[in-house]
Design a protein around this nucleic acid. Structure first.
Lengths: 143, 143
DNA sequence: GTTCTACTTCAAGTCGACTTGAGGTCAAGA
DNA sequence: TCTTGACCTCAAGTCGACTTGAAGTAGAAC
């Protein structure tokens, strides 16, 4: 495990240094020390950052992710939590799939106005009755 | 088209009255008048709200949605925008699908620690290289 | 030894979509 | 007529994940 300068970590992980400081403040990552003022990180931090990124795309909040690391720093991910998240994702995937299909149809549909397209109307009605709109936690933004 | 009281619209659409006021302020919906102080809405507002909800779950911002209504109030949804959004959704769906599969595997995997599970490691590496983490706009929260 | 530059800290700002709170008003029921 | 309670307005607050800005500092190049 080599030591990396914050700038190098930022560059390799593809996140701004401000984010690394923010994560450190939140206890998500830890620096091994300083060289002068500058934070140094163990190269293992890259894996940890990848794990964090992964958790974020899976829809976990930073706080939830923080709780997934044991005090020793090793991940302690509850398998039930993973299963539950997988199910949640699955539901979301199915919703989005239906939505995508309807959008495609609406885009191709020759009806003069979308409101006159039966498929589009069906979609609206489903949305109105809560059939489509059941998004869970927000998913992170691409930066 | 009957006239509805704001409370009725809120109840039927499943959104708080504060949201209706907020949407009205943003120009997303319009009230037909007042009875005393109270806003009255044309029942067509329900369809409009459904359309808004639909747009939100598809990942449009309120501003984008506002631009999708012509000045006369009829939707004018650009088919290219729909196609683009459908493609975006499709990409996101594939990402989430891969993530879900990996989560499921990790949940079932007998490796003592997730870090020792090859599938999980593959997932981390993919995330580290940006293969998984490519979320688009945030999707709305269920309220 | 001086300057440059990339880091440092800490507080405050941003963004989107609403919600909340304080203080006010009006239609309807008793 | 009086009370009640649900609505009204407007400003400010909230939430999560960061970013930005001001003012300071230390290692490295000259």
């Amino acid at each position: 495990m080599t030591e990396l300068d914050i700038a190098e970590v930022a560059q390799r992980a593809g996140v701004p240094a401000s984010t690394l400081r923010f994560y450190e403040e939140k206890g998500l990552i830890a620096s091994t020390g300083r060289r002068g003022l500058r934070r140094q990180y163990d190269s293992g931090v890259l894996e940890r950052l990848a794990l964090i990124a992964l958790g974020r795309t899976a829809g976990f909040s930073l706080d939830e992710i923080a709780r997934m690391f044991a005090p020793d720093g090793r991940p302690r991910i509850d398998r039930r939590v993973l299963s539950a998240k997988a199910e949640e994702l699955d539901r979301r995937i199915r919703e989005l799939g239906a939505l995508r299909d309807s959008l495609r149809h609406a885009a191709a549909c020759p009806a003069p106005s979308h409101l006159e397209c039966p498929t589009f109307r069906g979609l609206i009605d489903a949305a109105a009755s809560g059939g489509v709109a059941a998004p869970g936690r927000r998913l992170p933004e691409r930066r």
